[in-house]
C-alpha cells in the first residue's frame, strides 16, 4: 500500500450547512508527512465518523480540529481549517477560546485527580462561565444529567472522579466537555477502553447530543460508525479516500479501498 498520486476524495465531501471546513490540510511530524491534502466539511448538528486502518491519520486529523497538535513540538500543519468560516490556524486566533468552542473527549478516560464536582466545574471555572456558586452547581448538575451520569453520582459529587468505573469515567469526561458548552465535540475512539455495556451507553449519549452539538468521532469499530453517525469519512495512509452518508459507505462504497476496509480485508 502506498500513497495514491493525484488523489481526489470520492463522494459528498462538502456540506450545505458546514460547521467545520478543512481545506487542503497537510500535517507533518518532523520530516514525515502524516496527512495529505485533506478537504471536506463537517456539517452543523451532524455526527461524522472518521474510520480507517490504524495509522491512517484519522486521530491526527481530529486533533487538528481544535489545535491539540500544538502541544507536540515537532508537529506542523499546512492548509486551512475553518470554524464558522473563520480560519482557526490564523495567527490571530487564540487556541484557548477555540478549544472552549471545540471540545475533545479522549481514547482513555482521563478524569483529573479531583472530585467529580471539581472535574465538571474545572472548565466553567477557568473560563469564568459561572457568576456564582449556585450557577456553577446548576452547570454541574445539567452537564451530569445530559451525560446520563447524574443519578449514579449525585450522592457522591465530592468523592474522587478516579474512583468511578471506566464507563462512568468516560461519561464524566463527556460531561466535563459539555460543561464548557462547546459547539463541536471531538471524540477520539471514546469507547475503545470500555466494555460493551458502557459502550452502548456512550453511543446512546452521542445520539442524544447530536441535537445540540456537532460531533466528529474517530472509531475503529465499523459497527459503531454505522450506529452513531450520519456521514462517514474513510482515511487511508493519510489521505481522505471517501466521504459519504454512512448507509451508503457501508452498503455501496464508491472507492475500492473503502470497500476492502469495510469488508475486513485489512484493518
Amino acid at each position: 500500500m502506498s500513497i495514491i498520486e493525484n488523489h481526489t476524495t470520492n463522494g459528498q465531501a462538502f456540506s450545505e450547512a458546514p460547521k467545520l471546513q478543512a481545506r487542503n490540510v497537510d500535517v507533518f511530524y518532523g520530516d514525515k508527512q502524516a496527512i495529505y491534502d485533506v478537504s471536506f466539511d463537517i456539517g452543523a448538528n451532524e455526527v461524522i465518523a472518521l474510520i480507517g486502518p490504524s495509522g491512517c491519520g484519522k486521530s491526527t486529523f481530529l486533533r487538528c480540529l481544535n489545535r491539540m497538535n500544538d502541544t507536540i513540538d515537532i508537529c506542523r500543519i499546512e492548509g486551512d481549517i475553518l470554524l464558522d468560516e473563520e480560519n482557526i490556524y490564523d495567527p490571530k486566533v487564540d487556541v484557548v477560546p477555540l478549544r472552549a468552542r471545540v471540545g475533545m473527549v479522549f481514547q482513555k478516560p482521563n478524569p483529573f485527580p479531583k472530585s467529580i464536582y471539581d472535574n465538571i466545574a474545572y472548565g466553567p471555572r477557568i473560563h469564568g462561565l459561572a457568576q456564582s456558586r449556585v450557577e456553577l452547581d446548576e452547570i454541574v448538575e445539567r452537564s451530569l444529567q445530559r451525560a446520563g451520569l447524574w443519578n449514579e453520582v449525585k450522592d457522591r459529587l465530592h468523592s474522587p472522579g478516579t474512583g468511578l468505573s471506566g464507563g462512568q469515567q468516560q461519561r464524566l469526561c463527556i460531561a466535563r466537555t459539555i460543561a464548557v458548552d462547546p459547539e463541536v465535540i471531538l471524540m477520539d475512539e471514546p469507547c475503545s477502553a470500555l466494555d460493551p455495556i458502557a459502550t452502548a451507553k456512550i453511543e446512546e449519549l452521542i445520539d442524544e447530543l447530536r441535537e445540540n452539538y456537532t460531533i466528529a468521532i474517530v472509531t475503529h469499530s465499523m459497527q459503531q460508525a454505522a450506529r452513531v453517525s450520519q456521514r462517514t469519512a474513510y482515511f487511508h495512509m493519510g489521505q481522505l479516500i471517501e466521504v459519504n452518508p454512512t448507509d451508503q459507505v457501508f452498503t455501496t462504497p464508491e472507492h475500492s479501498l473503502t470497500e476492502a476496509y469495510i469488508t475486513g480485508r485489512f484493518g
Binding site: 487564540d94 484557548v96 477560546p97 472552549a100 468552542r101 477557568i126 473560563h127 469564568g128 462561565l129 457568576q131 450557577e135 464548557v180 458548552d181
Partner: peptide, 19 residues
C-alpha cells in the same frame, strides 16, 4: 449578565487569563 453567550463569556475572561 446572564444573557451573555458562552463564547462572549470566554472572550471576556481572556484578557485576565492572558496576563
Amino acid at each position: 449578565m446572564t444573557n451573555l453567550t458562552t463564547r462572549e463569556k470566554v472572550e471576556r475572561s481572556m484578557k485576565r487569563r492572558r496576563a
